[in-house]
Design a protein around this nucleic acid. Structure first.
Length: 550
RNA sequence: UGGGAUGUCGCCAAGUCGGCAAGGCACGGGACUUUGACUCCCGCAUCCGCAGGUUCGAGUCCUGCCAUCCCAGCCA
C-alpha cells in the first residue's frame, strides 16, 4: 500500500512529533471478535496501519475481547485472516483479555487512591441514579465506602462470592457531569461466564472504557485512532490514562466511520442476517464483509483504494457505492483476462458456412495489456450469441443484430440476419445469418460502416455453466420475508440476485480456478466462485452506455 | 430542551498568515472504437448551512441562529 495522501490525523501526529509530545508512532486496530470484519472495518484498519507505516512505526492487532458473551475463536481466526488479506499484516497480535491481571491491579490502585468504589446498585437503580441528558445524576449511597471495604468487596467480587449483576466497581468522577460517561461509570462487572481465551479464570470483567485505555497504554500505543462515536468517551479515556501508573500516555483521536449507500454496516444486523439464514453465511457474495467481498471477487487493493478515495474527515457521510465499483473496474480493466461467455444464449446458424468446418480466430486476452497475449477461439457454423444482442423490434439507436441488419462478430466476420425462426410459442428459436467471408480481418471493401460488435461462442465447443448476477452491491432478496422492524430492511432489493443456469463459456474457462477473475467481454467482471464449482459471480458490470441510448 | 461533534458541487473531499473555491466519483457533450468497454478532450459551486458584523477584501475572523449525528449498556 502506498502512502501518498495525508489527512487531518497525520496533521495531528505531525504536531505531536514536532512538539516532542511523542518521538515515534504506534497504532492499533482493536476489533471485538464478535463478528466478521466488513468494509467499514477496512477504513479503520487502513487508517491505523497506513499511519504506522507512514511514520515508520508499528501496528498492532489487538482483539478487544472483554465481553465473553459475544466473542469466540471463529471470529478471532477470521479477523486475522481478513486483515492479512487486506494487506495490513500486524506487527504484533495481542488480546485485551491477556491484560485482565493488569486491569485488576490498576483497579485496586484506583480504589486505594479513593477513585473507585464498589457499588451495590442494581442495573435499574444505577440507571435511575444516573440522571438524564438534561438532569444531573445522584450519588450512589455506596459512593463513600472506605478504601478497606472497597478493597475487600472488590477482591471478593473477583473470588466469585457474588452473583452476576449484584455489584460493580465504579470510577468516582462526577455524577453531575454534563457528559454522562463521566457520571461514575461502571468499570468492572461480575459475569460468571467462560471466556473464549481465559476460560473460567475470571468472573469479573473490565468494561470497555476502563480496559481500552489500559490496553493502549500497556502496548505503548501513541495514537489510538477510533471512530467518532467514541469522542464522548475521550474525557473518560484520558481520566483512566491519567490515573494509571503506566508511563505511556496514549492519545485517542477520532475520525468518521465509513458508510456506503445501499449497505448495511451494522455488525448486529449482519449477524442477524447470517443467523436467520437470509444469506449463505458471512461470506455470502452479497455481504459487505471482507470475506463476502473477497468471494464476490473484489481485490484487497480495490478496497483499500476505495477507502483512500473516500477520504478521512470527521463529517458524517455516506459514500456512493459507485466509487467502490469504479475502483474494482479500474483495477480489473488493467489486469483481468478477457473471456467470452454467453449468459442467455440464442442460436445462430451461419447458412453460408460449411458444415463441420472449424477456423480459429485470434482474440486479445487484454486489450489494455499488450503483454497479456492472445488466444485462439474456434468458429463454426452454429454459434450462440446473447439474446439481448438481437432485437425483433429494435428501438432507435440499436446497433446490434436485427432482421436484415448487420453486426460484427467480435474478432470474426460481419454477419447479416436473413431470417428468424420462431417456435410454436412465437419465441425466437434461432437466427439464420449469412457471413461476409471477406471481413475476417478487415472492414468491408465497399466502405459500409458496421456500428455494432457482439460476442459469440461456437455451439460445438462452448461449455455449460452458471453465473450469479448481483444487481447492486450488498442488496438482498426476499424482502417480504423480513419483518418491517428490522433495521436492514430498507437496504434490501428483491431483484438483487439472478442466477443464470444455462450459460455457455469459452472452453478455457472450464479450467478456471476458484477466485480467478475475468472480464466477460461486454458483460462485466466475474470471479469463479469458491463454493459452487463451475459458477461465476459477477463482481460488477461494465459501464453500460447503451442503456442510456448513446 | 444538557453536553460533544459536524455542516464547501448529486456523493466524497481539499482549502496555509483572511486575498478572491483543488481533486475524485457521478453526470452531460464530443473524439476514437472489431468490447456502445477502455482511452482522450470539453463542461459541471460568482459560491462555501443561514443571517448579521469586522475588513480594501472572509469559505477562512466575530456574533446570533438553523440542521444533522453521538451520549442516559453492569456492550464495544
Amino acid at each position: 500500500m502506498e502512502q501518498t495522501n495525508t489527512n487531518f490525523i497525520h496533521e495531528i501526529i505531525d504536531e505531536d512529533l514536532a512538539s516532542g509530545a511523542v518521538d515515534h508512532v504506534h497504532t492499533r486496530f482493536p476489533p471485538e471478535p464478535n463478528g466478521y470484519l466488513h468494509i467499514g472495518s477496512a477504513k479503520a484498519i487502513w487508517i491505523n496501519h497506513s499511519t504506522a507505516r507512514k511514520y515508520g512505526g508499528e501496528f498492532n492487532l489487538r482483539y478487544d475481547d472483554t465481553n465473553p458473551v459475544k466473542e469466540n475463536d471463529e471470529f478471532v481466526r477470521a479477523i486475522y485472516e481478513d486483515i492479512c488479506w487486506l494487506g495490513a499484516k500486524p506487527d504484533h497480535v495481542f488480546y485485551g483479555s491477556d491484560y485482565f491481571g493488569i486491569c485488576y491491579e490498576q483497579a485496586v490502585k484506583l480504589i486505594k487512591k479513593g477513585l473507585a468504589y464498589v457499588c451495590d446498585l442494581s442495573a435499574d437503580e444505577m440507571r435511575e441514579y444516573r440522571g438524564t441528558l438534561t438532569e444531573p445524576g445522584r450519588e450512589s449511597p455506596y459512593r463513600n465506602r472506605s478504601v478497606e471495604e472497597n478493597l475487600d468487596l472488590f477482591e471478593r467480587m473477583k473470588n466469585g462470592e457474588f452473583p452476576d449483576g449484584s455489584r460493580t466497581l465504579r470510577a468516582k468522577i462526577d455524577m453531575a457531569s454534563p457528559n454522562i460517561n463521566l457520571r461514575d461509570p461502571a468499570i468492572y462487572r461480575i459475569l460468571h461466564k467462560t471466556h473464549h481465551r481465559q476460560g473460567d479464570k475470571w468472573c469479573i470483567y473490565p468494561l470497555y472504557d476502563f480496559a481500552h485505555p489500559i490496553q493502549d497504554a500497556v502496548e505503548g500505543i501513541t495514537h489510538s485512532l477510533c471512530s467518532i462515536e467514541f469522542e464522548n468517551h475521550r474525557p473518560l479515556y484520558d481520566w483512566v490514562v491519567e490515573h494509571m501508573d503506566i508511563p505511556n500516555k496514549p492519545k485517542q483521536r477520532e475520525f468518521a466511520r465509513l458508510n456506503v449507500t445501499y449497505t448495511v454496516m451494522s455488525k448486529r444486523y449482519l449477524r442477524d442476517m447470517v443467523e436467520s439464514g437470509l444469506v449463505d453465511g458471512w461470506d455470502d457474495p452479497r455481504m459487505p464483509t471482507l470475506c463476502g467481498l473477497r468471494r464476490r471477487g473484489y481485490t484487497p487493493e480495490s478496497i483499500i483504494e476505495f477507502v483512500k478515495r473516500a477520504g478521512v474527515s470527521k463529517a458524517y457521510s455516506v459514500v456512493d457505492a459507485g466509487l467502490l465499483e469504479y475502483c474494482i473496474r479500474e483495477e480489473l480493466n488493467r489486469t483481468a483476462p478477457r473471456r467470452i461467455a454467453v449468459l442467455d444464449p440464442i442460436k445462430v446458424e451461419i447458412t453460408n458456412y460449411p458444415d463441420g468446418k472449424t477456423e480459429y480466430f485470434t482474440q486479445n486476452n487484454n486489450t489494455e495489456d499488450p503483454n497479456a497475449g492472445t488466444r485462439e477461439v474456434p468458429f463454426t457454423k452454429n454459434l450462440y450469441i446473447e439474446r439481448e444482442d438481437f432485437a425483433l423490434d429494435p428501438p432507435p439507436k440499436f446497433f446490434r443484430l436485427k432482421k436484415g441488419g448487420e453486426v460484427r462478430l467480435m474478432g470474426a466476420y460481419i454477419i447479416r440476419c436473413d431470417d428468424v425462426v420462431l417456435n410454436e410459442n412465437g419465441e425466437i428459436e434461432r437466427l439464420l445469418c449469412s457471413a461476409d467471408l471477406e471481413t475476417r480481418n478487415n472492414n468491408p471493401a465497399d466502405g459500409r460502416k458496421i456500428k455494432g460488435t457482439i460476442h459469440w461462442l461456437s455451439a460445438e465447443t462452448a461449455v455449460r455453466g452458471a453465473a450469479r448476477l448481483y444487481d447492486r452491491l450488498f442488496t438482498l432478496e426476499n424482502v417480504a420475508d423480513i419483518p418491517e422492524d428490522k433495521g436492514y430492511r430498507d437496504y434490501l432489493n428483491p431483484n438483487s440476485l439472478k442466477v443464470c443456469e444455462n450459460c455457455f463459456f469459452e472452453p478455457s474457462l472450464a479450467s478456471a480456478k476458484p477466485g480467478d477473475r475475468f472480464q466477460f467481454v461486454r458483460l462485466g467482471y466475474f470471479c469463479a466462485d469458491t463454493k459452487y464449482p463451475g459458477s461465476f459471480n459477477r463482481i460488477v458490470t461494465l459501464r453500460d452506455s447503451y442503456a442510456k441510448g448513446k
